[in-house]
Lab assay of single mutants.
Amino acid sequence: NQESVVAAVLIPINTALTVGMMTTRVVSPTGIPAEDIPRLISMQVNQVVPMGTTLMPDMVKGYAP
């Protein structure tokens, strides 16, 4: 099972992602793959992401799977 990126904290809208904001977990449905965390650093979320929420591609500005 592939791990997906999950919010480790509440991430406010338009916040640039940092390593500490993200964790990984096997979830269903799957979100952004864990191995993409290095690509996500400094990208901004386009909505509020509650802690424990799986990051989906459409939540991150400029992210393309």
Rank of each mutant, 00 (worst) to 15 (best):
S28G: 09
V45C: 03
V60W: 01
G52F: 07
N46T: 11
N1F: 12
V5M: 02
V19P: 09
L17F: 02
S42C: 03
M43T: 06
M56R: 10
V26N: 15
N14M: 10
A16S: 09
S4I: 02
I32E: 01
V49T: 04
G52R: 04
M21I: 04
S28A: 04
G52M: 03
D58S: 14
E35F: 09
T23Y: 13
G20C: 04
A64T: 11
M43W: 07
M21D: 06
T30W: 07
V49L: 13
G62E: 08
A7K: 00
M43H: 07
G52T: 04
A16C: 04
V5F: 01
A34M: 10
Q44M: 14
S28Q: 15
M56K: 09
V48L: 14
M21A: 06
V19M: 15
S4D: 01
I32H: 01
K61P: 07
A8G: 05
S28D: 13
M51C: 03
P33S: 07
I13N: 06
M59L: 04
M21V: 08
I41M: 07
V6C: 03
R39Q: 07
M43Y: 10
M51V: 12
K61F: 14
I13F: 12
A34V: 07
N14G: 09
L55M: 10
P38Y: 06
P50F: 11
V49P: 00
M22H: 01
P65D: 11
G31Q: 03
I41N: 05
S42E: 08
I11M: 06
A34D: 05
A64N: 13
G20N: 13
T15N: 06
I13C: 03
M22E: 01
A7T: 05
D36V: 05
P33Y: 13
L40Y: 02
T54H: 02
T24G: 12
L55Y: 00
T54L: 06
M56Q: 15
M56F: 11
N46A: 15
A16I: 14
T23G: 15
P33F: 13
P29V: 05
I41P: 02
T24K: 15
L17W: 01
L10Q: 15
Q2E: 07
N1S: 14
N14T: 04
P38M: 14
Q2P: 10
P33W: 07
L55K: 01
T24D: 02
R25N: 13
V6S: 08
T30L: 13
P65S: 10
Q2N: 10
